[in-house]
C-alpha cells in the first residue's frame, strides 16, 4: 500500500509540475461557470442539481484528458519498463496512477464547492442532495477515470487513449438516451448498464447501495482489465 501511495503522490505532483492539470481544471471551471451561471438567475431557484448534470457531461472529455498519458506516455517513452523493473507490482502501478487521477478529480470537485456556497448565500440550499451529488460525481468520475486508465494501458499513443476512453465513456453516459430504439428486453439491461440510471438517483439526493456497488464494479473491473493488459506484455 505504501508503494501504491508513493506512486500516487509522484503522479499527483506530476500533474501539477506540468501544464495538464492547470489547463484541464481551468477549462473545466470556465465552461462550467459559463453554462451554470448564465441561466441560473433566470431559473431563480436555489439548487445545484443542474451543476451536477453539467459536470457529469463535462467529465466526458475531462476524465480521458487526465488519464490518457498515465500509461500510454510511459509506454511511448519506454519508462514503463524502468518502472516495472522496480520493486513494485503491476497492481500497485495501476492503483497508484488511478489514485493520482482520482486525487486531481477531487481537487476539481473542491474548486466547484464555491458554487453551492454561493447558491446557499443567495437562497435556502438543501445541502443533503448537494453532498450526495458530489458523491455521485466522484463515483461516476471515478468510473470514467478507471476506463481512462484501461484505455491508456492498451496503447502507447495518448490521442488514441483519449479517444478510446472518450468513446467508451460516451457509450456508458448516453446509452440510456437510445432505449426507445432498442428491443424491450435489451433496453432494460442497457438502461441498467448506463451511468445516468445510477447517477440520477444520487444527484437528486438518494444514496442507494445498488448504485454505489454498480460504480465500484465498473471501477474494479476496468482496473482489473488494465492490470491484465499491463501484465500481458510479459507473455504476449
Amino acid at each position: 500500500m505504501n508503494r501504491t501511495l508513493t506512486i500516487a503522490k509522484r503522479e499527483f505532483r506530476g500533474y501539477f509540475n506540468g501544464p495538464v492539470a492547470y489547463i484541464v481544471v481551468c477549462l473545466f471551471l470556465l465552461v462550467m461557470g459559463m453554462f451554470f451561471w448564465s441561466p441560473f438567475f433566470i431559473a431563480n431557484r436555489a439548487t445545484v442539481r443542474g451543476m451536477f448534470d453539467l459536470m457529469a457531461f463535462l467529465l466526458l472529455p475531462t476524465a480521458p484528458a487526465l488519464t490518457m498519458g498515465l500509461l500510454a506516455e510511459e509506454k511511448r517513452t519506454g519508462t514503463i519498463e524502468i518502472l516495472l523493473t522496480m520493486p513494485v507490482r503491476d497492481t500497485e502501478v495501476i492503483l497508484g496512477k488511478y489514485l493520482a487521477a482520482f486525487g486531481l478529480l477531487a481537487v476539481l470537485m473542491l474548486c466547484t464547492l464555491a458554487y453551492p456556497l454561493s447558491v446557499s448565500s443567495l437562497g435556502h440550499l438543501d445541502w443533503g442532495p448537494a453532498l450526495s451529488g458530489y458523491g455521485a460525481l466522484l463515483l461516476e468520475g471515478g468510473a470514467m477515470l478507471a476506463i481512462g486508465v484501461l484505455a491508456s494501458s492498451w496503447t502507447d499513443n495518448q490521442l488514441v487513449a483519449f479517444f478510446t476512453s472518450a468513446v467508451i465513456c460516451f457509450a456508458f453516459l448516453f446509452m440510456s438516451r437510445f432505449l426507445l430504439f432498442l428491443p424491450p428486453g435489451v433496453a432494460s439491461i442497457v438502461e441498467w448498464l448506463s451511468f445516468d440510471y445510477h447517477f440520477d438517483d444520487m444527484a437528486r439526493g438518494v444514496i442507494d447501495t445498488r448504485n454505489v456497488i454498480y460504480f465500484l464494479s465498473v471501477i474494479g473491473f476496468s482496473l482489473a482489465l488494465a492490470f491484465r493488459s499491463l501484465e500481458s506484455r510479459r507473455w504476449s
Binding site: D126, G128, V206, I207, T209, R210, A224, R228
Partner: peptide
Amino acid sequence: SAAFLLIVGGILVLCNVLGLFFYARTDTT
C-alpha cells in the same frame, strides 16, 4: 489471465445481483 478476469467479473456481477435483493438507501433531502 482470462480466468482471473472471468472470476473478477463473475464476483462483481454476483455482488450487483445480490445488491438488488439486499440493499440500503438513504434519502438525504
